[in-house]
Write a protein that binds this DNA or RNA. Structure first.
Lengths: 227, 227
DNA sequence: ACCTGAACACCGTTCAAGT
DNA sequence: ACCTGAACACCGTTCAAGT
């Protein structure tokens, strides 16, 4: 009990900065992240960060590449369809852990070391499958795009279900009136929303993710040069 | 020449507000949008906006639904694969016109009238194709996710190519050193990047978009109940 | 080399007060 | 009903000055 806390490296560093940045982003999203907040969390003044980082944008780039490192690359002897599905699954789980990444992906160029390693891993799987040249690029893009798009939709769905404030009763009444109007103008959608009201968002999202991925893999397999 | 300008409705309205908001977002992205900026562009004080709009978030929601209305829905007698491809294409072009939408889609629930109409249109095409129940949802999600993911990747690519400041010479030298290091650690990626250096980003993005979409449609067709 | 403290030019939002 | 003007609590970023 002698030292109140272990001194734990009072010294600043890029690593420590992006560490707390990722922590804040995970907990509170982009809204909660400010240079001043990161600084105080490190027991330091805002201006001090600019010794290690050019600006907020660079800090975000570093945070982005840091979490890209969490994606696990399948072993090189796994069959290509399985390997691609595993890679996509790991990619998806990482995006669900760090939802703020999606907002960055659309804007930032994203050329950090982990991003490059990830692309190389995807390419090697598709080369093993038999793809080459322009189709190789298109195939990798197809899988990556599906992951990004699917997680984007899953998060939006979760956010739409989230604000169940005022008890489920008020929400149900509000939804009831909403559905009644909907049934008149958009009958198909109303039917699907009614069917979706009881499902587990997480499980259903995972099912849809797999469904589209299998469609995609079937389509890719059919386009293999000599098969 | 008598009146300096036509009086053009000095009165504020939700419509006029989201109109200039969309204009600013198109021209300068999320970074350029502020309540104060919108206000001065309307010749008014920032506080005045709060009479028509609860906060910045609501203004963004309205802007999002406004541009969703630009997507054109194919006629109900078009064959389903063609109809789905047309709808996806129109969706894609709208996202390329308003890149800021992608940042919103990941966060905002997006349940405005135009969003609902769009979902209904997609569902009706897939019902016509023969899908039902859970597969119907998954099929629609698959197509939408592909559009969102593909445009996201296209914009990131364009942004990465964009900052060709200091002349193409400096950029080429920088890229040269980069590629040399890349060739050692990531040979496949280095090869693809070299091959991509001369291509037209717009045309190649469109090709990849179509490639993955055809893969997806093949996969969907194979999963039709009785075919 | 590394950090503080203060400043600058911004934000979103609220709200009395005017008309 | 609709808008102003001022205020509040924030931002990112810079930069002299300290150590």
């Amino acid at each position: 009990m002698r030292p109140e806390r272990p001194p734990r490296d009072r010294r600043l560093s890029r690593e420590r900065i992006v560490g707390v940045a990722v922590g804040i982003l995970d907990a509170e999203g982009h809204q909660g992240l400010s240079m001043r907040r990161v600084a105080t969390e490190l027991g330091v003044t805002a201006g001090a960060l600019y010794w290690y980082v050019a600006n907020k944008g660079e800090m975000l780039e570093l945070a982005l590449d840091a979490v890209l490192g969490e994606i696990s690359v399948p072993a090189p002897d796994v069959e290509w369809r399985r390997a691609l599905a595993d890679l996509a699954g790991s990619h998806r789980r990482m995006l669900l852990r760090h939802p703020w990444v999606l907002t960055d992906l659309a804007a930032q160029p994203n050329l950090g070391p982990n991003a490059l390693a990830l692309s190389e891993a995807g390419l090697s799987i598709l080369v093993r499958a038999g793809f080459a040249d322009a189709d190789l690029d298109a195939a990798l893009a197809a899988v990556n795009d599906h992951v990004v798009g699917a997680v984007s939709a899953e998060l939006a769905w979760r956010a739409a279900m989230g604000p169940a404030e005022g008890g489920p009763q008020e929400w149900a009444e509000q939804m009831d009136g909403y559905l009644r109007r909907l049934r008149a103008e958009h009958p198909l959608l109303a039917g699907r929303m009614a069917a979706a009201s009881g499902v587990d968002v997480h499980a259903e999202s995972e099912r849809r993710f797999g469904f589209a991925l299998e469609c995609l893999l079937d389509g890719l397999a059919a386009r293999l040069p000599h098969s």
